[in-house]
Amino acid sequence: MSIQAIEETTVKAFPAKPAAVIAFSAKARRRFDPIAIAGRLATALVPPIIVIVVMLVVWQIACSSPTASLPPPSQVWNEAYDLIAHPFFNNGPQDIGLAWRVLISLQRVAIGFGLAAIVGVALGALVGQSIWAMRGLDPVFQILRTVPPLAWLPLSLAAFRDSSPSAIFVIFITSIWPIIINTAVGVRNIPQDYRNVSRILRLNQFEFFVKIMVPAAAPYIFTGLRIGIGLSWLAIVAAEMLTGGVGIGFFIWDAWNSSRLPDIIVALAYIGVTGFCLDRLVAAVGAFVTRGTTAN
C-alpha cells in the first residue's frame, strides 16, 4: 500500500462511525443574554424530552401484556426504585449503589485511557514525524486496530493473571489506536511554514514538540482522544462482564444471572449517561485547549 493510500484510508476509516457523535459541537455558548439562553435551552431540551416520553409510552404499551418477556417502565420503576433513587447506598462489599459501580469502572477507564493518551500521542508524533517509523509501524497499527477489544482479554488475563489490570489493559489497547492514528495525521498536516519558522529559530526536538507540534496537531489529537474515550467505555463494560469485580459491567451480568431485568435496564441508562458525559467532557477540554488553533 502506498503512503497516500494509507493516509487516506486512515483519515477516512475513523470518523466513519463516531462522526454522528462528533457533529454536535458546543458552539452555542457565546453571548450571555438570559432570555436567549432560556430560549436556546428550551429548543435543546424540549424535543428530546418529548421523544423520551413517547418512547416510554410505546414501551409501556408494548410490554404491558402478561406474556411480555421484558418489563415495562412502570415495573422497572417499582422493582428497581432503590437503584434509581439511591445511587450512593453502600450495604457491604457486593451490595452498593450504581454510582459507586460506575465510579469504579471510571477509575479503570481513567488509568487505561490515561496511559493510552500518553503512549498514543507519543507514538502518533513519531509516526507522523518520521517517514520510516510510519512505513514500519503503520501497517502493524492498521491490522491491530481491527482486533475487537474482547479478543485481547484472554491474552491479557494470561499475562497479568489478575482481572483488574487485564481490564485496564483491554481499555488501553482499545483506545490507543485512534489516538495514535489521529495524532499522526495531525502531525503530518502541520503546515510547512510552521516547520520553517521552527527551523529558522533553531528550535530543538523538544521545543518543537511542545511549542509547535502539540498545539498545531491539537484538534486532531482531541478527535482521537474523543473516539478513544468512547471506545474505552464500550470496552470496560464488556470486559467487566467477563472479569467480574464490582464494576457496572459485572453488575449487569450478575443481574442477568439472577433474572433482575429491571436492574439491567437501569444500569444501561447509567452507562449511556456516563458515556455521554465522558464524550462531552473530552470535547469540552478539546474546545478549550484548541481555541484559536484552527482559525488562521
Binding site: Y194, V197, G292
Partner: peptide
C-alpha cells in the same frame, strides 16, 4: 541571523 518574512505571514495561530 537570516530571518524570513513569509508570504503568508506564518504566525502561529494559537
Amino acid at each position: 541571523e537570516r530571518a524570513v518574512v513569509f508570504q503568508n505571514h506564518s504566525l502561529l495561530p494559537w
